[in-house]
Amino acid sequence: MKIRILPERNELDLPGRQRVADALRQLDMLPGTVMVIRNDELLTDDAWVEENDTIEIRRVMSGG
């Protein structure tokens, strides 16, 4: 799967079909700190992401 991370605009690939929770674990991201979006749909952490999917991971933390 192709992943685009915002706001950094980083792009990376993860192999195979995976649940959102597993993909986030590999990226060392906590659920609830990012939105995982596929085709204008927000995904819950039990949703499956297919190998050919492209998803956007948008960080929600802001402040300073």
């Binding site: 706001p7 609830g32 927000l42 929600v60 402040g63 300073g64």
Partner: peptide, 30 residues
């Protein structure tokens, strides 16, 4: 929560600034 507000803005199609303030790098609040 911050997650709930981000999801609300996303669902409502609110076009907000995604980038962080450049001064917030290393800020104690984060």
């Amino acid at each position: 929560s911050e997650y709930e507000m981000a999801a609300y803005a996303f669902f409502r199609g609110i076009d907000y600034i995604l980038d962080e303030c450049p001064n917030s790098v290393g800020a104690s609040q984060l």
